[in-house]
């Protein structure tokens, strides 16, 4: 049972046949009362979760790598496994050896996003901070600045935009039509789809779990509803397992996309 459901249920005290309709969860599930406010600035639960995620990632890898040993044990073992995964399966796969300087960056994105995602199914947290668009958007903003700066640095301002807007191997006349699409794609649509993809997946996943949890609660009672309630609860369990997979996958994909954008900035696509 998620915290959101408890709020919904205690506010409505609502079951089947008790004379109230299904309290369908909506956007209200994603809005939180501020924990505290400083002037016009409200500190809310997603921010708290993002901070906790950050501290968890820093804390874990600090303990893993603060005193490295030649023969890794415990946390260092797991940490190195994570590092090698990002380096070999994401960075070297998309950028190649030249990508090694950017592995720490990709590594941070991967684990920060992953821990934020996993918060969706941790008891009492039960909210993926990444389902508020601001979090994916700011991460993507950093990636955006990174690949633009790298591109301009490596290919020159004119060269970078020339490579972006004029893919080789086309008749000259058609560039006139295609260049605006490429420019929009490279500067706006690419980061936009990247942020929206993470946000939408986490949003939808959280919504599904909440809907079925509320359903299980609403249908509960000493009548036929109990059967449906049990079914709904099983769906929650299955969805939670499914979400666990999606959370890792989305963290992997946002890192992979970041790596592939950095790779197009390092050298022009052929």
């Amino acid at each position: 049972m998620t915290a959101d459901v408890q709020t919904l249920a205690s506010e409505s005290g609502c079951h089947l046949f008790s004379g109230c309709g299904f309290p369908s969860p909506g956007l209200n599930v994603f809005e939180f009362k501020p924990i505290f406010s400083i002037g016009a600035f409200d500190f809310t639960k997603p921010m708290l979760l993002a901070l906790i995620s950050m501290l968890l990632v820093i804390g874990f890898f600090w303990s893993a790598f603060a005193k490295p040993k030649m023969v890794p044990r415990g946390a260092q073992n797991v940490g190195e496994l994570g590092y090698l995964f990002v380096r070999d399966n994401i960075s070297r796969e998309t950028i190649g050896k030249k990508g090694d300087p950017y592995v720490p960056f990709l590594f941070s994105i991967f684990f920060f996003v992953w821990v934020m995602n996993v918060m969706a199914i941790i008891p009492f947290a039960q909210f993926p901070a990444t389902s508020r668009i601001a979090f994916p958007a700011s991460i993507v903003g950093i990636v955006w600045v990174t690949y633009l700066v790298l591109g301009i640095k490596n290919q020159g301002f004119v060269g970078y935009f020339k490579n972006m807007m004029f893919p080789p191997g086309l008749p000259k006349a058609i560039y006139f039509l295609l260049a605006p699409i490429e420019l929009l794609q490279g500067l706006i649509t690419r980061p936009f789809t990247m942020a929206v993809r993470l946000f939408a997946n986490m949003f939808a996943g959280h919504m599904l779990i909440v809907t079925f949890s509320v359903g299980a609660w609403y249908l509960l009672g000493f009548h036929i509803g109990a059967l449906y309630s049990a079914t709904s609860f099983i769906v929650v369990v299955v969805l939670t397992a499914f979400e666990l997979m999606i959370q890792a996958l989305q963290a992997y994909i946002i890192t992979l996309l970041a790596a592939s954008y950095i790779s197009t900035s390092l050298e022009a696509e052929h």
Partner: peptide
């Protein structure tokens, strides 16, 4: 997967422009 997503991006960009 990168190719799939950049394709979606191209279609969106083309329609937008």
């Amino acid at each position: 997967d990168g190719a799939a997503w950049s394709s979606v991006g191209y279609l969106l960009s083309g329609m937008l422009i």
